[in-house]
């Protein structure tokens, strides 16, 4: 196994400069933009970013106001990975044929969970299988937030959204969250990781490692959404941290097929600590909360996370 390399020893090692800059129009407290700002700091200016349709595209690009200090391209919703394939192949061919100066340019797709888990999954799978040298980042806010909070394959069990309504007979989403990092890992690509902005040092090191690796890398980042999760704007980070501390969103890396947890959780908090802060789960009964806890216990055991706090 490759030697464990730490790119940033402390957050003070991050560049002062932003490559995803001020003046974007994301909601106050947006978890997604915290993650993007940090990922871009980690990656630096030598890249081309492809963003499919979604919150990030909309808040960062209304003509003539772009929040990108790096080359950036939006094409459509379902094809970020395919466009990234073309960008990577184009650069490769032009450099090999002497039409463009040879240097490593990182190709990065930054998509949402709708554009990744649902409509973009085919393009993502194709690009991972073909082995393009690129990083695919999924900013997972667990629903179609840009269109107004609709359920995606990545929405967790029991969550209210505008298309998994809570009513007299329906308790929100009836299905479990799709495990996209596991799908990515099933392509046997060199690097898959999960991250979250509440653990910024873990996040930036993973982002940097992911772009430095040759071949496809996949980074799945949990990003709280203030209007969609029905949370106060100041709690995005706190809630993201609780997702990790409860074992709901474990932080790990899969390198060369081997999974290891990067943020240890010696004593897991009860899931209700996480759920009770969010309006999207406000309707859950104790029975449903226990059902979620059981599922998390089972998943945590598989990953070797610690026992639950009593």
């Amino acid at each position: 196994m490759a030697e464990k390399k730490v790119f940033f020893k402390s957050l003070k090692d991050l560049p002062k400069e932003d490559f995803f800059v001020q003046g974007h129009r994301a909601c106050p407290g947006c978890g997604e933009t915290i993650a993007v700002r940090l990922i871009m700091k980690a990656v630096g200016p030598n890249c081309i970013v492809i963003t499919p349709t979604g919150c990030l595209e909309v808040v960062s690009s209304p003509y003539p106001y772009t929040s990108w200090a790096v080359p950036w391209y939006h094409v459509a919703f379902e094809n970020a990975a395919a466009v990234a394939s073309g960008v990577e192949a184009g650069l490769k061919a032009l450099m090999r044929k002497g039409k463009l100066e040879k240097k490593r340019i990182h190709v990065i797709a930054i998509a949402g969970d709708g554009g990744t888990a649902d409509i973009g999954l085919q393009a993502l799978s194709g690009a991972l299988e073909r082995g393009h040298d690129f990083l695919y980042v999924c900013l997972d806010n667990e629903a179609y937030m840009n269109t107004g909070i609709q359920r995606s394959g990545s929405t967790p069990y029991g969550a209210w959204t505008t298309t998994s309504a809570v009513g007299k007979i329906m308790p929100g989403k009836l299905q479990w969250k799709k495990n996209v990092p596991a799908i990515a890992a099933a392509h046997d690509i060199p690097y898959v990781a999960t991250a979250c902005p509440a653990y910024p040092l873990d996040l930036v090191n993973k982002a940097k490692k992911a772009v430095e690796i040759d071949g496809p890398a996949y980074l799945h980042v949990l990003t709280p959404c203030v209007p969609g999760w029905r949370i106060p704007s100041n709690l995005s980070i706190k809630i993201a941290r609780l997702a990790v501390q409860t074992g709901i969103f474990p932080l790990y890396e899969v390198e060369d097929g081997r999974l290891h947890v990067t943020v240890k959780v010696p004593k897991r908090k009860h899931v209700k600590e996480y759920l009770k802060l969010q309006g999207r789960f406000a309707h859950l009964t104790d029975g449903e909360i226990e059902k979620i806890q059981k599922r998390v216990d089972m998943e945590s055991e598989k990953l070797g996370l610690g026992p639950r706090e009593t």
Partner: peptide, 17 residues
């Protein structure tokens, strides 16, 4: 893996020149 991605990849490659 599809024609949709064929044109998407063409778009990406053409955009870098």
């Amino acid at each position: 893996e599809s024609e949709h991605s064929a044109m998407s990849a063409c778009i990406g490659a053409s955009a870098v020149g």
